[in-house]
Design a protein around this nucleic acid. Structure first.
Length: 415
DNA sequence: TCTGGGGTCCTAGGACCC
DNA sequence: TCTGGGGTCCTAGGACCC
């Protein structure tokens, strides 16, 4: 029988902090993202903080208004990654197929001949006990016959609960829930569905699949299948990692970017981080994207595909700046946020064609220089080497996209 | 002074080639 | 010379996840 568990560590970031610092137990604690920028948000909160209405995604200043005593901590991703690793290690004792979904969620596939939902629930309860005893973390677990329903089950009751959704009871448990509870049904889709009088997952399940295809394309067909318990996407083998498709950094600056020089400074910093991360991953790419957000929060993105792969900061920065200047984005100044990313990636191991004009040699030299800088920065910190145009811009030079970025991959789209 | 940052996939239109 | 179909690549934008 197919038995799939979805384990969700409740308030993961905040809980990790409390585990490490027991004196915070019982106090309202939140972990805040990006406190240096103006619009830091709440990444996670303890139960005590939630009592005041503090929620994930809320601006930090709003959270402080709701709860003046709120203790706001800087995120410590090293700690979260370590706790995440220990959790996964525990899960792996129960299944050879443990698929991570972010740092705090996993699917476990217990399917095998003779397996039952009852046994699945037993494993779920055991995991919750062990997580509490051995790691100090609280889990909510969904047990079901597919990934979508097990995920829904782990959201159904929290914190610290197991929910079992079977072929026999899903119509009574799942169908009365609002459509927005279904994975991949976000705010926009919910709104569109509501306008068509489709409010519950049951309503969605009863809607003609072709109608949904007409409204939402192939994603609509996926919604139909998910609502009807027809999802059969596999839980990936432990250790499976999907290929990286893009590497990028973006940042909301401490003060608005007012001039082209400001923008250049920020784009330089972003490009340096992206370039270093590409080298670390052994990747290079040929599609360079620029993203900008102005003070009205209007965002635009543009991209260009060049005729060679690159991981050079020099290239990435120059091309991103070309996009900025040659497409009239100066008109968007002042800017609040900017991003640079590289996609259409290839492994550096893949052989490159040598050109006849010495370009390859020149690029090799540049790469040597950039690698040397990587090395110095690894040893003495990111600020140990700064470009001239960056050093000149005091307000932006302390932005550190490389250190701030969160390793938090969320692959898999059931489409 | 109102949602940060890092990703993935899908779609539609245009360009270009056969 | 004109027309149509099909495939692929590129770009912008939308939607979703944690």
């Amino acid at each position: 029988m197919d038995v799939i568990l979805h384990c969700d560590a409740n308030s993961f970031y905040a809980s990790c902090e409390v585990v490490q610092r027991p004196e915070l137990q019982g106090l309202p604690v939140s972990v805040g993202g990006d406190q240096e920028a103006r619009h830091g948000i709440v990444l996670a909160s303890t139960v005590e903080a939630k009592k005041y209405g503090v929620k994930t995604g809320m601006a930090l200043w709003q959270a402080r208004e709701l709860c003046p005593r709120l203790i706001i901590l800087k995120p410590d991703f090293r700690l979260y990654m370590e706790m995440s690793r220990r959790l996964r290690q525990m899960y792996q004792e129960y299944s050879p197929r443990v698929e991570s979904y972010g740092l705090d969620e996993c699917w476990l596939d217990l399917s095998e001949p003779g397996m039952t939902m009852t046994e699945g629930k037993h494993v779920a309860d055991t995991l919750r006990e062990r997580a509490k005893d051995e790691l100090g973390l609280c889990l909510s677990v969904g047990v079901s016959f597919n990934k979508i329903f097990s995920k829904l089950g782990s959201d159904y009751q929290k914190p610290d609960a197991t929910t079992v959704i079977t072929q026999d009871n899903y119509k009574s448990i799942v169908w009365p829930l609002p459509v927005s509870d279904l994975m991949f049904v976000g705010p926009r889709t919910t709104l569109k569905l509501r306008q068509k009088m489709i409010n519950t997952i049951g309503d969605l399940a009863a809607t003609d699949a072709n109608l949904l295809r007409g409204w939402f394309g192939k994603v609509g067909v996926m919604h139909y299948a998910n609502a009807n318990g027809l999802d059969r996407s596999p839980v990936m083998e432990t250790g499976f990692e999907s290929a990286i498709k893009s590497i990028g950094n973006s940042t909301t600056t401490p003060i608005d970017m007012l001039t082209c020089e400001d923008v250049k400074c920020v784009i330089t910093l972003l490009s340096e981080s992206v370039s270093t991360r590409l080298r670390e991953a052994g990747l290079q790419g040929r599609c360079i994207s620029l993203y900008l957000r102005d003070t009205d929060l209007k965002t635009v993105g543009c991209q260009i595909t060049i005729n060679h792969d690159t991981a050079l900061c020099d290239d990435i920065c120059k091309i991103a700046m070309d996009l900025f200047t040659h497409r009239g984005y100066q008109a968007m100044l002042p800017l609040r946020s900017a991003g640079v990313s590289v996609s259409t990636l290839r492994s550096t191991m893949t052989a490159v064609q040598l050109d006849l004009f010495g370009m390859t040699i020149r690029r090799d030299k540049l790469e040597h220089v950039e690698r040397a800088v990587d090395d110095i920065r690894r040893r003495y910190g990111m600020q140990s080497v700064l470009r001239g145009n960056v050093m000149a811009q005091r307000a932006f030079s302390k932005i550190n996209p490389y250190n701030d970025h969160v390793i938090h991959p969320v692959p898999w789209y059931a489409g």
